[in-house]
């Protein structure tokens, strides 16, 4: 995973609440068995509408998505995160994220910055007034900066550390292999067993 420290880029204002993962990437795009190549599925249904914000040329190349509350609800599909990243997004800013989406983002290297609702509103206004506005998302300082706006954002300390260091979760866990084995030795024999194949 690539390290994430400070990201600066232009932003896409998505004035929608409850953007569920079925909207971020509809089910028909989930049939692939690869980890990349999902950008064509991103907001596929909404993109058919020429007035949809992602179709507006002034926002081409935006890498920060600013969305309404309850972003990423619904299905656990990590494809939603991959589709956003494949399209070029590196950060999503919202006042509230669904848990699983947020977890998936942290694993895949997409930064989710949780801010107060009025910060989202001010960012929308700034970028709508001038789509070229540079939005800086500073993970070290936990800060969003754009125009004269400076606002802090929330992210849990562990995810922040992993993103800053670009660390692979599985590698960290495997370094505790002894403790896993110790735990396994104490599991009662009546615990459920599914296999073997």
């Amino acid at each position: 995973m690539d390290k994430v420290t400070v990201h600066a880029g232009r932003a896409l204002p998505l004035r929608r609440s409850n953007v569920d993962t079925d909207q971020i990437i509809p089910a028909e795009y989930l049939k692939r068995v690869t980890r990349t190549g999902f950008e064509d599925g991103l907001f596929a249904a909404w993109r058919k509408d020429p007035s949809f914000v992602l179709n507006q040329p002034e926002y081409d190349g935006a890498s920060v998505l600013v969305a309404g509350p309850d972003f990423g609800t619904g299905s656990s599909r990590e494809h939603a995160v991959w589709a956003l990243m494949d399209h070029g997004f590196r950060v999503v800013i919202s006042a509230r994220f669904a848990d699983i989406f947020r977890g998936n983002s942290g694993k895949a290297g997409l930064l989710t910055a949780c801010v107060e609702p009025d910060v989202v509103e001010r960012l929308w206004q700034l970028v709508e007034a001038d789509p070229a506005t540079e939005v800086v998302v500073d993970l070290e300082q936990r800060e969003v900066r754009a125009g004269d706006l400076v606002a802090s954002f929330e992210i849990d300390g562990y995810t922040r550390w992993r993103l800053l260091e670009g660390l692979d979760d599985i590698g960290i866990t495997l370094s505790h292999d002894d403790q896993i084995s110790e735990y396994e030795a104490t599991r009662p024999s009546w615990k459920p067993v599914a296999g073997p194949a």
């Binding site: 990590e78 494809h79 998936n104 694993k107 895949a108 979760d169 599985i170 866990t173």
Partner: peptide, 9 residues
């Protein structure tokens, strides 16, 4: 529920 990275984990 978990995502695919967690499934791998």
């Amino acid at each position: 529920g978990i995502g695919t990275s967690e499934v791998e984990h």
